[in-house]
Every structure is written in structure tokens, then in C-alpha cells.
Computed example of a mutant assay.
Amino acid sequence: MTSLSVRLAALVAIASVAACADHSVVRQGRVTRPAAPPSAMPNSESFRMCAAKLDAAKVRYQPLPNQDRGGGCATIDTIKLMDIGTPTANLGPMTCPLAAHFAAWARYAVRPAARLYLGSEVVRIETFGTYACRDVRGTGGTIAGKRSEHAQANAVDVAAFVLADGRRISLVDDWRGDGPSAQFLRVLHQSACKRFRTVLGPDYNAAHRDHFHLDMANAGSSGRSFCR
């Protein structure tokens, strides 16, 4: 191999090493970079205090990484509820205060009210979910530019309750009645208004005809909750 060939081979090797130092991968003309590392886990003082309350109440949960999801949506200081004593469907990320109030509401309001008004145990709570990167839903649809508390994982929508005897009590079917099922739901609405900052039900607007919207939105300087 000539001296020129040796130098060319060395330059090619150096270029190859430099390319490997950048972890980008070229596929079909596109550069694919590795996923960003996970965000830091919740570690604020308020989160630690909230988590201590969940621990004391023997609520099982899993802390979730903080994540800015873009577009005004984020999941900060959130957890995944694993066991609150009553199986609950569709729970995603929830801010810790929301999760703590929801667990307490299920334990101290939902279960006792079912025994008192319906003579049975609640074996399942059905929800429409928690986190959703979207705007507020008003009477005429979403309100553009006004993010829902769901966009911060600070809200949960409760749709129905399944009983040990097989009955299913739902907002869409039983709210308008006048029997024990309706009484049960109205008591839950009243109790929720004492625990959550905002409670919206079927009497608020058509968008909430089939669920309770429960959130922990900042009530502002007045400190008042919004219950409809």
C-alpha cells in the first residue's frame, strides 16, 4: 500500500469513528435519534407530603416521571393508583392531590353510600379516564385555547358504579330518576363537592350528562369551589 493510500485509509477510519460518536441513525434518507432520557421522578416537597398521606392511608400507587407533553399539556408530580380498596377502571396519570382525594372519596363516600342507599357493596368504579391533552368541553363543544384540567392530569371523569349484586348504577341512566339509585348518585355529588375544587355533573351541561367531572383546579384567591 502506498503512502497516499495509507493516509486515505486513516482519514476514512477517523470519519467512521466520528460518525459513530453521533448516535444518530440514518434510515432511508432520514436521521433517527435515540429517545430522550426519562424525565426526573416527582420530588417536590408538596409531592412528598401528599405521598406520605397515601402511604398512611395504605393506598398503593406508583410515582410517574415528570413529563412536559407539549401544547400546554404536562404530567407533573403524578402517580398511577394501583389499589384504593375498590377496583377502578381507566385510571391513568393523576396529580397526587387528585389521587388522594379520589381514594378518600371512594373509601369514605362511595362505599358507605352504596351500603346505605342500595344495600350492596361497590365492587367496581368506572371512569372515562384522567389525563387527556385537550381543551375544556363546553355546551357547544370544546373551548379553543382553554386547556382542561385533564391536560394536567388533574381531573377524573366518573361514569358508573358496579355493585356486588350485579347492578350497574350509571350517571347517564340513573341520575334523572327518583329512586334509591338517583339518591345514591346525588349524595355522591354532594360529598364530592366537599372534597374536590370543581365538580360538574349532568345538571351542568350536556357535555357532562353521563359523568361526574372531578378536579383539583386552583380555586383562586376566593378559595371557593365550583359545584354544579
Rank of each mutant, 00 (worst) to 15 (best):
P180C: 06
I169Y: 08
M82S: 13
F47K: 03
S148I: 07
T127V: 01
R107L: 00
G138E: 04
M1E: 11
D203T: 12
A103H: 04
R186E: 04
H213A: 00
K194T: 09
W175Q: 07
R168H: 02
R27Y: 12
A217F: 01
L54K: 07
A74Q: 10
L4N: 14
R197G: 13
A113T: 09
G70H: 06
A21H: 13
V199Y: 01
F226T: 12
G72C: 06
D22H: 10
G129L: 00
S120H: 03
N66S: 05
C193S: 06
C50T: 04
S16R: 09
P63N: 07
V31Q: 11
I79Q: 04
V123H: 10
P87D: 09
A159S: 09
V6G: 15
L64V: 05
A164S: 09
A13R: 12
A206V: 14
L64Q: 06
L188D: 02
D173Q: 10
G85L: 06
A36S: 09
N43A: 12
R7G: 09
A155V: 02
R60C: 03
C133R: 02
S225W: 01
K80C: 15
A103L: 02
T88K: 03
A114F: 03
A18S: 09
A40I: 03
A164C: 02
N90Q: 11
P202C: 05
I14A: 15
M1C: 13
I143Y: 06
P87Y: 10
L91Y: 06
C20I: 13
S44A: 08
D68P: 06
D215P: 07
Q152C: 05
A36T: 15
L98A: 07
K58N: 12
V199D: 04
Q152P: 05
A132T: 12
S120W: 02
R30H: 12
A219F: 09
F128T: 14
Y108G: 12
D178T: 14
C133M: 07
R33L: 13
E149Y: 05
R186K: 13
R137T: 15
C133Y: 04
F161S: 01
R30E: 12
P37E: 12
A36C: 05
V123T: 08
V136G: 00
G119H: 05
V31S: 11
D68S: 12
N66R: 03
A182K: 03
S24G: 12
G70T: 08
L171D: 02
A151T: 03
N218P: 03
G129C: 00
L188Q: 04
T130Y: 07
A109M: 09
V123Q: 08
A57V: 11
A160C: 02
Q67V: 14
T32A: 15
A153Q: 00
S221A: 15
V25F: 14
T95N: 01
I125P: 02
